[in-house]
């Protein structure tokens, strides 16, 4: 198990390879469909959100507002990442992102972006909303809540020992490409 703490250095990212299991500590920002489209169209990050050396988490959590105005994260698993394929590589490069957490993997453009800019794709366990919510130790803030609605907002989360697997590394390797090719060959021989 490898520990990753934000902000992450390029060196630490380049040391990771496909199949590594990691635990993430520090601050991560959620961002999914609406945020990616907005940023790709030239939208600016709100003051307080800095993705340099940081991690974007493809996630729309369940958040409950507490009596004192703070937020409690009650479910926070990853959403399907491939929908951000048209936007991700440029966002990684433009904002200096070092890690993208999601599920299902991403395509060739993102893989090339990871290699060029020094970033990895970190696969969290889809559906494991409770285990992952327990890793959120504090909700530090929320941005674009009104504009995009709760699941699509940018949530700033403090996490501890958040588990994920490197499935796309900064060397051009992708577990998803590998498994697809092997399963396609296995199917051909069974038709």
């Amino acid at each position: 198990m490898i520990s990753l703490t934000t902000p992450i250095t390029e060196e630490a990212v380049r040391a990771l390879k496909v199949g590594d299991e990691v635990q993430i500590n520090g601050v991560i920002f959620t961002g999914r469909d609406a945020v990616h489209k907005y940023l790709h169209e030239g939208g600016e990050l709100p003051p307080g959100v800095d993705l340099k050396g940081g991690i974007i988490y493809h996630c729309g959590p369940v958040m409950m507002k507490q009596a004192d105005g703070s937020w409690n994260c009650t479910a926070a698993g990853p959403t399907t990442s491939i929908r951000e394929e048209p936007y991700q590589a440029e966002i990684i490069g433009h904002f200096g992102v070092r890690g993208v957490i999601g599920k299902g993997g991403m395509g060739d453009r993102t893989l090339a972006g990871c290699k060029e800019h020094g970033c990895v794709y970190l696969h969290a366990i889809g559906g494991a909303a409770q285990v992952l919510a327990e890793c959120v130790t504090r909700v530090r803030g929320v941005y674009f809540l009104e504009k995009f609605g709760s699941p699509e907002a940018i949530w700033e989360l403090e996490v501890s020992e958040f588990p994920a697997v490197v499935t796309m590394d900064a060397h051009g390797e992708s577990l998803h490409r590998e498994v697809f090719a092997a399963s396609e060959a296995a199917l051909q021989s069974r038709l």
Binding site: G60, P61, V62, T74, A75, G77, A129
Partner: peptide
């Protein structure tokens, strides 16, 4: 145990 959503996408 916590009576909370198994997955956040309900």
């Amino acid at each position: 145990r916590k009576s909370q959503p198994i997955c956040q996408d309900t």
